[in-house]
Design a binder for these strands. Structure first.
Lengths: 192, 192
DNA sequence: GTTGAAGTATACTGATCGGTATAGTCGCAA
DNA sequence: TTGCGACTATACCGATCAGTATACTTCAAC
């Protein structure tokens, strides 16, 4: 817990950016939350944009590590891991601080595709999808890319749905759908 | 096309709010785009918040009407309509002005559930889901609510995915997944 | 021909935005 | 003891934010 000042600022910024939104959070609010001054903030981050990018990169790193660890702790086989993903998502959604996906939110706040914030957000989902694709491949899907994209649509949809309205059972339904899609993708003959 | 001043302001605001984001769009920019003055804007809208709510309500009304019309133009039976939804979404995503779902974006910009903007956005998806539920019921789904929720997760996921990265085939995969989920929900014995 | 409503033009308010300048405090190392 | 880098304190900058006050034009109804 011994954070240096730069980490303390980033930690404070992360909390505010995620819970209130990026544009809604002023530099002064970050400074106050980190118990420091603007001068120090601008010593470590050249601009607010720079701080935002740092927030997203760290969130990317932390979230993916946490997520994979959670999944691995719940399941051993690739197929079980694919399903465990939905349990992890479900538990994540249940925490009161849940405010949707930081990357989806950031992309919504900075809609232009060329924007650096938008790009960093897009990278997260690229890597997240790669993770699911690899699991799909390992468990013998006929088309790992298709299955992975389909499952990631369910996940993103569930996150957004839960963000719009809490406790609507999105994660559970996403898992039920995932079970069907996984089985369909594993059998040689499509189930329809 | 003969818009009165209030409609002109709302039209200009809608374009800017959707393409650039709500917080990123100042009142002055709306005024300039509508070729009017602040005084007139504040005659018809008591505050920027009021204008934002009006934007979302009109978008709700217009989009749902347009969407249902598009679906009805593509299919006759309830089952065909469920699938046509994904074609409409796909075509919508292809237009260059596409910037994701205005309601998802608004909810991301105003993350607190109690916020009026957030609430209006949530209402849209409630009604959208009701529409899908009704179609699911009409085509004999064993559990219309479940199927509708699952399909809406695919739709929301596809929209978000396309917003993050254009032309990644999200809509097509969503439709493929939908076909499987619909068949599974129509058969008496789950296909797994 | 007058009145009144609709809309324009423009200057303004106070607050907040991101970012900077200057001076001072603090602890540690040579 | 001196010097130095990390950090603080505070006041400031110009720009922009949402919102208002005042005066003016335009035009149609009576």
């Amino acid at each position: 817990m011994s954070l240096n000042l730069k980490e303390k600022i980033l930690y404070a910024a992360s909390g505010l950016f995620y819970s209130q939104g990026i544009r809604a959070t002023g530099v002064d609010a970050v400074v106050k939350a980190a118990n420091t001054t603007k001068m120090s903030l601008y010593k470590y981050f050249s601009s607010k944009d720079d701080l935002v990018i740092a927030f997203l990169r760290k969130r990317d790193e932390d979230f993916r590590a946490w997520f994979v660890e959670q999944v691995n702790g719940k399941a051993d086989t690739p197929k079980a891991k694919l399903l465990a993903i939905f349990d992890v998502i479900s538990e994540w959604m249940a925490i009161p601080e849940f405010r949707g996906c930081a990357f989806i939110n950031a992309a919504a706040e900075f809609p232009l595709e060329g924007n650096p914030v938008h790009q960093v957000s897009a990278e997260f989902y690229d890597q997240f999808r790669s993770y699911i694709t690899e699991l799909s491949r390992q468990c013998g899907s006929r088309s790992p890319e298709s299955l992975a994209l389909q499952l990631s649509l369910l996940i993103e949809g569930a996150i957004v749905s839960e963000q719009m309205k809490r406790h609507s059972g999105a994660a559970e339904q996403a898992k039920q759908a995932a079970i069907i899609l996984i089985e369909a993708s594993l059998s040689d003959i499509p189930c329809m």
